[in-house]
Amino acid sequence: MSNTMEAPVKVAPLRKKMRGLRAYPLGLIGLLTLLVLAGFCFLGPYLYPTDQTYVNLVDAALPPSGEHRLGTDANGFDTLGRLMKGGQVSLQIGLLAAITATVVGTLYGTIAGLARGVLDGAMMRLVDIFLSVPFLFVVLILSARFTASTVSLGLIIGAFSWLVPSRLVRGEVLSLRVREFVLAARVMGASRPRLILRHLIPNALGVIIVNITFQVADAILIVATLGFLGFGLSYPATDWGGQLSGGATYISDGYWWLVYPVGGCIIATVLALNLLGDALREVFGRQNS
């Protein structure tokens, strides 16, 4: 056959797409920022151990110094150490919520798109109903009734965030299901689960991955909002939103180190995720066409 046959290129399409990211410097900056932030939150405590359990009112609200690089807060906790601890929680909840939302949304959307007809109509109207519920109130009520933990908050946020991915995935499946390779699988006698898992979801993966980045960013903002409103995690656990709310109380006293670092972290994380998502969308969009 042709001589191009000799050197087989063994690059999976997905990995190739990740390589395509190189052409988007902003996306790369986003990815690096995220890696640095994750390293800071999860590895930082080993390099910079601090006591985040016991209140130490003697050292309350100290400005940055050699001992406390970013000062201390009103309870005497080291701010830099607290930033790491809060960041762990924020990132964990964000990731958990995004994964929950994506898994549920993808399955829901695929089933609806594949079924079409009455079932599809009913499933999507349910999504419309959920989308019209003022989500923040429900979460506030729920978190007032249940003690919030990392897992429960992640699941609650996830349970309200799957609606957008389900719509996206359904749209993708509607166009994929009439593609010839799906018809070919049906001609072979492939079952519905097989169609969904082997043919539809792998090909909708581009849309799904891009959406995950935005989901994580949204979830982190929601956690921050909840924390800021005082419905976040219970003391002494904390997250970036809770820290920000604590710091904001003292903003008129000039305790800048309680506000700007944590605010900066939230902005940096969300911005980085959005940059990465945009770049991924470009990569997938370009290679699919």
Binding site: E180, F181, A184, V187, M188, S191, H199, P202, L205
Partner: peptide
């Protein structure tokens, strides 16, 4: 029964790129 008998009825499609799953 149709699922089983489908093996006896096969189809070749027009667009060879569209009819092969790009991720396989």
């Amino acid at each position: 029964e149709l699922g089983r008998r489908r093996a006896e009825l096969q189809m070749m499609f027009q667009d060879p790129l569209a009819s092969l799953n790009p991720r396989m």
